[in-house]
Simulated scan of single mutants.
Amino acid sequence: MKSTLFKRFYSTTLITALLSGSHIAMAAPPAAHAEQANAAKLTLDQAEEKALSSSVDLALLRLDADSTYYKTRQTLQEKSAIKSNSIKKLDQAKKKYEDMAKARKDLVLGEANMKAQENTLRLQVQKAYLELLYIEAQIDLQQQSIKRQFWSSSPGEATEKNVGDLKTSHKQALAKLNELLNENPAKEWKLAADDLTDYKLPPLEEIQQAAHEKRPDMVKARAEKEFAQARIDYLNDYSALSTYLGKIAKNDGIKADLVIQRTKEKADQEIAGNYQKAVTARQALEESSKSRKSGEKRYHEVLSNYRNGNAALSELIEQEGKLLEVETKHAECMYQYHTAVVTFKHSIGY
Rank of each mutant, 00 (worst) to 15 (best):
Q209T: 08
V108R: 01
K214D: 04
P202F: 06
G309Y: 08
D194I: 04
N38H: 10
A230R: 00
A193T: 08
E206L: 06
S242K: 09
K190T: 08
Y337R: 07
N236Y: 08
D268W: 12
D64R: 05
L181P: 02
F150L: 14
A312K: 14
Q143V: 04
Y10N: 15
A65N: 07
K176A: 11
S54Y: 01
G164L: 09
E265F: 06
E296Q: 12
A37I: 07
R262G: 04
A28Q: 11
D99T: 07
K247G: 08
I24H: 07
M1N: 04
A211G: 12
L61K: 13
K79A: 07
L201H: 10
K50Q: 12
E35N: 08
A211P: 08
S145T: 04
E188T: 06
E179W: 02
R148T: 10
L324G: 02
A284P: 03
S67P: 00
L177Q: 03
Q149R: 15
E179Q: 14
L61F: 01
N85A: 05
E301P: 00
A278Y: 00
K345S: 13
R262Q: 13
D64W: 04
L235A: 06
T168G: 07
E296T: 02
S242R: 07
Q117N: 06
I207T: 11
A272H: 07
L52G: 04
E206C: 02
E270D: 09
S154P: 04
N119Y: 07
D66N: 14
H300V: 05
R231D: 03
R62C: 10
A223G: 09
E265I: 14
K102Q: 09
A331G: 05
K297W: 04
A116C: 04
F227Q: 14
E78G: 05
T197N: 08
H300M: 14
S53I: 06
D217R: 13
E78P: 02
A17D: 13
N162W: 00
E332D: 05
E332S: 11
L19Y: 01
R104C: 07
E265A: 15
L130T: 10
A312Y: 11
F6N: 11
T4E: 11
Y234K: 09
T72P: 00
A40F: 05
K102G: 02
T16P: 01
S84W: 01
R62Q: 13
A281Q: 13
K95G: 10
P216I: 01
T159F: 00
H346M: 03
Y234F: 14
T120E: 11
Q36A: 15
K250I: 13
L141S: 14
E320Y: 00
D66P: 06
L90S: 09
N305K: 15
S304K: 15
T4S: 07
D140W: 10
Q126N: 10
W151Q: 05
L174H: 01
Q138L: 15
R222T: 05
T343Q: 12
V125M: 01
E183R: 13
A281C: 10
E224Y: 05
F6S: 09
D237F: 03
K214S: 11
R222Q: 14
